[in-house]
Design a protein around this nucleic acid. Sequence first.
DNA 1: GTCTTTTGTTGGCAGTCTGCCAATAGTAGG
DNA 2: CCTACTATTGGCAGACTGCCAACAAAAGAC
Lengths: 199, 199
Amino acid sequence: MTVSTARRQRLSPDERREQILLAAERLFAERPYAEVSTTGIARAAGVARGLLNHYFGDKRALYLEVVRRAALLPTLEDVPLPTGDLAERVDVAVRWFLGSITPERATYLTVRAAEGVGEDAEVRAILDQAHDLAAGRVLEMVGGDPQDAAARAAIRAFGELARGTIREWSRDQNLTREQAHLLLRESLLVIVRKVLPGL
Amino acid sequence: MTVSTARRQRLSPDERREQILLAAERLFAERPYAEVSTTGIARAAGVARGLLNHYFGDKRALYLEVVRRAALLPTLEDVPLPTGDLAERVDVAVRWFLGSITPERATYLTVRAAEGVGEDAEVRAILDQAHDLAAGRVLEMVGGDPQDAAARAAIRAFGELARGTIREWSRDQNLTREQAHLLLRESLLVIVRKVLPGL
DNA sequence: GTCTTTTGTTGGCAGTCTGCCAATAGTAGG
DNA sequence: CCTACTATTGGCAGACTGCCAACAAAAGAC
């Protein structure tokens, strides 16, 4: 520790926020919410515990901020709309979904872990927003109408299939990447061809 | 309160366990884990707080028990294997999945609420087990090999699609039941026809 | 029917954690 | 160099959890 001699390091609010968020993100990813103490987060971030409350209000607000960042991060980048026939566009959409996960941003994967019982309305809202955003992207890619509520709902449901498939491939390794790709491609294809028109 | 006069009611361990579990299930379904206090559960159940520890160890163990029951309950009933051609069997499987949710057992629906960040290994294991059980059922119904790990993984992923679809139908009402059925039927059909053989 | 044993049940103690706030100390501007 | 600003700290009060010894309601012994 080269900086351990400085008793107080005064940073800009943005830097300090980021520093705390990083520590919190790491700890919340390791243990369930209740087993992560604000004391632990503060220690990991190298700041006094009171600073967490100063920046984020309370523990839960800090947690929600971590969830928000982790959930929305992968969908923030914009992607070019694919061209070509339906099969090609579906292929691009699936590859985008698969690619937005990949090992280097494994954080995303953990952002759908289940608590078990009980809808946490605020967390649910954050995840719904992120998933809906991704669904809109996919719907555009495959040439659907992003304004169609039913179509959007169907694609959101497809998103669940995608995340489930990705978990089987990435974490549990019960599917290869090719198999995952096949599963998602065929499913999305049939949804666009046979289901969306029927809504 | 007709029994409020009795200072101490001495019940059989099974009855008392059940009584506590019911109260805990209700409270955990309303609020996230951290915001449910054992004091509150004890009050709702009408017992001393210490009794929770006596029967379940600690708060988390009680919670896991609630999750376990809620997650496994719907898949405990056994269903007859459908006959007929593939389209019919798929139809029965989808209807079983849709039917195992329905309003009267809405508890199940809440059993996949997301915490947000961080895999809770124990909770995850419980849900995985329940989902795998359901996937095995579906795989049998559609005539697949329940021992095939890749096929089973694909059907587990389909289970995510099913739960997502059910949420769009049941909670958010962005899909009608017929639309949900259509989506799941076509998807499962193409998975069985085009994906499973390719694994 | 009374006494004894068993065990389901309670209340409180000690430790931990959280939210809050007044005091402290870097840092920029005059 | 000094002052004003504010990022940062440490500790206090309240709440919650796990634990355990004491209590009492049934069941069994005689």
